[in-house]
Amino acid sequence: MYKGGKIIASLIIFAALFTIPFFYNMGKVNAGPDVALDTPAIQQLSDKQCVESPEFMRANHMKLLNQWREEAVRNGQTVYINSQGKEYPISLQDTCLKCHANGSASKVALSNPASSTTGVSNPAINESPEFCASCHDYSAVKPKCWSCHFEPKEAAK
């Protein structure tokens, strides 16, 4: 191959550069998020149970939210029947946020996703440890829910 040695050497250098972050972090302990389940909001609830088991929610909440969205918006099916046969209204505000509410009392102004260069500025994620923030910051996943949906607290003022 013409200039074969150089090509293969460059490829190896490229692969090495590309995988630096992986090797750099390999073997290092990165403390995961510490999510408290006994928040005041949850303590006040009579039924301390999410729509599905915590294990299921941890693994599949994004798929479930996508399903909810499709069913509620597109098929008009606004009630979710969980694996135990219990019914829940499909609503971020009336279902999810009942527990995963903004823990801090600070009022959050409506975010302006357009002015943010990173994509979406996200008050709920930034400020509520009990909600998405702790895990989502940790895994660097930025959902875009809050450019349209919001928590009851912001609007109650």
Binding site: E52, F56, A59, N60, K63, L64, Q67, E71, N75, G76, Q77, T78, V79, Y80, I81, N82, S83, E87, P89, I90
Partner: peptide, 14 residues
């Protein structure tokens, strides 16, 4: 596929 044995229905007041 993830298995949440569940379903969807319309609200009672719908």
């Amino acid at each position: 596929k993830d298995a949440a044995a569940s379903g969807y229905t319309k609200a009672a007041k719908d």
